[in-house]
Simulated scan of single mutants.
Amino acid sequence: MGVEIELHAGRPVLNWDRSRPTLIRGSYEHGDALAAVLLGVDVQRQGSLGLVDPYGNTMFNEQQAHASLRDVPGLLQQCSGPAQTAAVLDLEGLLRSCSETPGSYLWFVGD
């Protein structure tokens, strides 16, 4: 199980081949560690990142990405090692990039 994240310039088509033209960058190396952190998120306390489905696809627009940035410090406190910390820091960078790019989306691709 793992979660990959892709930043797209516009809403991607949920089809791997057809979504390539909108891809800005992706995060593919932290999948298992990120999934483990996201499974531990308390939706009541940590907001929208708790809505990311580690087993399916979840899409955030730039406003949702911006709102999710406030949840990152709590996620960092939950990390159980360097792999999870690296995953959350990568997530933070993608959330920030999405929130600063008008019309962009983050696509969380679950396993």
Score class of each variant (00 low, 15 high):
residue 66 H to V: 01
residue 27 S to R: 06
residue 47 G to S: 09
residue 39 L to G: 07
residue 47 G to A: 14
residue 47 G to D: 07
residue 57 N to I: 06
residue 51 L to T: 12
residue 49 L to C: 10
residue 20 R to F: 06
residue 54 P to K: 13
residue 62 E to N: 05
residue 55 Y to L: 10
residue 32 D to L: 08
residue 37 V to R: 11
residue 32 D to Q: 02
residue 67 A to V: 02
residue 44 Q to F: 13
residue 73 P to N: 02
residue 25 R to L: 10
residue 63 Q to S: 13
residue 20 R to P: 01
residue 65 A to H: 05
residue 26 G to D: 10
residue 28 Y to Q: 11
residue 78 Q to P: 00
residue 41 V to I: 12
residue 61 N to K: 08
residue 43 V to H: 12
residue 54 P to I: 06
residue 57 N to M: 13
residue 33 A to E: 04
residue 77 Q to P: 00
residue 34 L to Q: 09
residue 50 G to N: 07
residue 38 L to I: 08
residue 34 L to R: 12
residue 40 G to S: 09
residue 49 L to E: 03
residue 62 E to S: 13
residue 39 L to K: 15
residue 68 S to E: 04
residue 42 D to W: 08
residue 67 A to Y: 08
residue 77 Q to M: 07
residue 76 L to P: 06
residue 56 G to V: 00
residue 55 Y to M: 08
residue 20 R to L: 12
residue 76 L to G: 14
residue 54 P to H: 04
residue 46 Q to F: 11
residue 80 S to Y: 05
residue 64 Q to F: 05
residue 66 H to R: 15
residue 57 N to R: 14
residue 24 I to N: 09
residue 66 H to N: 12
residue 72 V to M: 12
residue 36 A to K: 14
residue 58 T to E: 01
residue 23 L to V: 07
residue 68 S to P: 03
residue 21 P to A: 02
residue 20 R to I: 10
residue 20 R to A: 04
residue 64 Q to P: 02
residue 68 S to V: 02
residue 80 S to T: 09
residue 58 T to F: 11
residue 62 E to V: 01
residue 58 T to Y: 14
residue 77 Q to Y: 08
residue 80 S to V: 07
residue 23 L to S: 03
residue 61 N to R: 09
residue 31 G to M: 09
residue 44 Q to E: 14
residue 60 F to C: 03
residue 22 T to D: 05
residue 21 P to H: 09
residue 68 S to Y: 03
residue 53 D to Q: 12
residue 74 G to V: 02
residue 43 V to P: 09
residue 57 N to E: 11
residue 38 L to S: 02
residue 80 S to D: 15
residue 33 A to N: 00
residue 49 L to S: 07
residue 77 Q to E: 14
residue 50 G to K: 05
residue 66 H to P: 00
residue 57 N to L: 07
residue 39 L to E: 14
residue 50 G to P: 05
residue 58 T to R: 09
residue 45 R to F: 10
residue 39 L to Y: 06
residue 52 V to K: 11
residue 42 D to T: 01
residue 40 G to Y: 03
residue 41 V to P: 11
residue 64 Q to M: 12
residue 36 A to Q: 14
residue 46 Q to R: 08
residue 79 C to D: 06
residue 81 G to C: 03
residue 70 R to G: 01
residue 60 F to L: 03
residue 24 I to A: 05
residue 28 Y to G: 08
residue 31 G to L: 05
residue 38 L to M: 10
